[in-house]
Design a protein around this nucleic acid. Sequence first.
DNA 1: CATATATTTCCATTAACGTGGAAGTATGGA
DNA 2: TCCATACTTCCACGTTAATGGAAATATATG
Lengths: 117, 117
Amino acid sequence: MNDATSALGALAHQGRLSVFRMLVQAGGEGLAAGEIARRLGTPPNTLSANLNILSHAGLVASRRAGRSIIYTADYERMGALLGFLVEDCCGGSPEICAPLALIAERAAACCVPGDRP
Amino acid sequence: MNDATSALGALAHQGRLSVFRMLVQAGGEGLAAGEIARRLGTPPNTLSANLNILSHAGLVASRRAGRSIIYTADYERMGALLGFLVEDCCGGSPEICAPLALIAERAAACCVPGDRP
DNA sequence: CATATATTTCCATTAACGTGGAAGTATGGA
DNA sequence: TCCATACTTCCACGTTAATGGAAATATATG
């Protein structure tokens, strides 16, 4: 995965990070571009450009529904990015594991079904 | 942590990502700027600029040793960045946990002392 | 002090990013 | 067909990033 930089670059922007967070929260249903623009107060063309960047980085996918275009976060790609970062750090040096243990625990806790009503 | 974008931006560059990986691998001892430049074949001034960006993002620290300046990766900061990304994703939506479980397992395995001679 | 080594800072140039107005394309409804 | 809605693409502008040559700074050594 040499294009980790493209994903990192896509997220290295306050507006795009907000969009991505919103889409992750929205889940599989996703959100229409206009709805995102409305919530964030971004002009539609600016948002479109940023969605395009996220899309080229593989972090979001889009489908048409009526006259809206629905964007969804690509969990697999995000997981791959995190995997790259973690392996790149943890695989290279055990010292980094102290903070990672916390993360792992949180991730494990989040996977228990039914603990989030 | 609103400055996640600065850390992401610092890593969203092929050259800087290579530098950071190298420093993580180098461990607590770190590496002199010149050594990094030599290994990567980067002109010293270009490298210096990139180290400065990584430093401002909090991802590396530096100390002087003789006439060399030794750079080290800041594990805590990197852990915080990963924590932010994971919480931002996993905390918002359980669906992302599938890929994260793998990461957690790898991170846990990497923390067992003595498995890496 | 003179010199060599190690890095940084200064500077100029080129490329890329971010932004939003205006026009264009697709869909749905009267 | 005509119109409204929902996005996108085109374009132009200003801002920021990336690069490396040349000079400056800091340290060590003879």
